[in-house]
């Protein structure tokens, strides 16, 4: 495909990290378009005119009835046909935080079983920097550039990944990213390295195709070195390779 990669960033009422996500994809060389759902619903904008779908963080519909639920229902309801076509055309899909929650609610993730992003183990909204490592066995194109750990913030109250059948996801190497401790060993469920108590330290997963990725942390908030609170004093790089890999996959 020639030309600049176009990323669709859907904006529901209450979505709020849309501009952050757009800035990250733009830093990776793509052109990002923040589109209100009303414009998708009216047909003014079409998913088919883009090469990547990136569902941003925030509090879509105020998290009413559960984080991501109503946006997920939008996706599995009136938006489902466009989405099905896009997925069957092998469009990469990226969901971060509330976007991840919505992809799970919509059934796109994990894609082969039930899962939920439950309330954090400490029952609080939690904003702190975490260290993440890509699972080397996962062959998703999104992870192609992640040779070393990355660091970025989490900011959520409902991010504890719980799967109905975790072994199925592990067995197909569907875990994308895990929380690491400061020593760069697995967090082992320990707070605060694993900030929410997720099963198996899971921060993000992919669907069986590897094209749909969802994660709770915010890599879009660490694509420039100036955003690093430790200013490079400790290992753990920025997250730009994640976005570049996605863009490269469709370039």
């Amino acid at each position: 495909m020639s030309g600049v990669v176009r990323v669709l960033i859907p904006v529901a009422l209450g979505t709020n990290r849309d501009a952050d996500l757009a800035a990250a994809f733009e830093a990776a060389g793509a052109e990002a378009d923040r589109v209100p759902l009303t414009a998708l619903r009216s047909g003014e904008k079409k998913l088919a005119d883009y090469q990547i779908l990136a569902v941003p963080g925030g509090f879509s519909y105020g998290d009413a009835l559960g984080a991501g639920r109503l946006l997920g229902l939008d996706m599995s309801g009136w938006f489902s046909e466009q989405l099905r076509e896009a997925v069957s055309a092998e469009m990469p899909v990226f969901g971060v935080c509330n976007g991840f929650q919505a992809l799970v609610r919509a059934g796109l993730l994990p894609g082969d079983g039930d899962a939920v992003l439950a309330h954090n183990m400490n029952h609080r909204f939690e904003c702190r920097w975490v260290t993440l490592e890509a699972d080397g066995a996962n062959s998703s194109p999104w992870l192609a550039g992640l040779d070393e750990p990355i660091r970025c913030p989490v900011a959520h109250g409902e991010g504890r990944f719980v799967a109905g059948d975790i072994d199925t996801i592990e067995d197909r190497n569907g875990v994308a990213l895990r929380y690491l401790g400061d020593d760069h060993l697995p967090a082992g469920g320990a707070y605060p390295a694993n900030p929410n108590g997720s099963m198996n330290d899971i921060a993000g997963i992919t669907d069986p195709s590897g094209l749909v990725i969802g994660l709770m942390p915010h890599p879009e908030n660490h694509v420039f070195d100036r955003q690093d609170p430790l200013r490079g004093r400790f290992a753990g790089g920025n997250c730009l390779p994640l976005f570049k890999a996605g863009v490269d996959a469709v370039s």
């Binding site: 709020n16 963080g57 939690e126 908030n221």
Partner: peptide, 20 residues
């Protein structure tokens, strides 16, 4: 402070709590 999002918009360079 951890219950407040101090990172959204991606512009924060000096945070309320820091150090190692």
């Amino acid at each position: 402070i951890r219950t407040y999002d101090h990172e959204v918009q991606g512009g924060t360079v000096v945070r309320p709590y820091g150090g190692v």
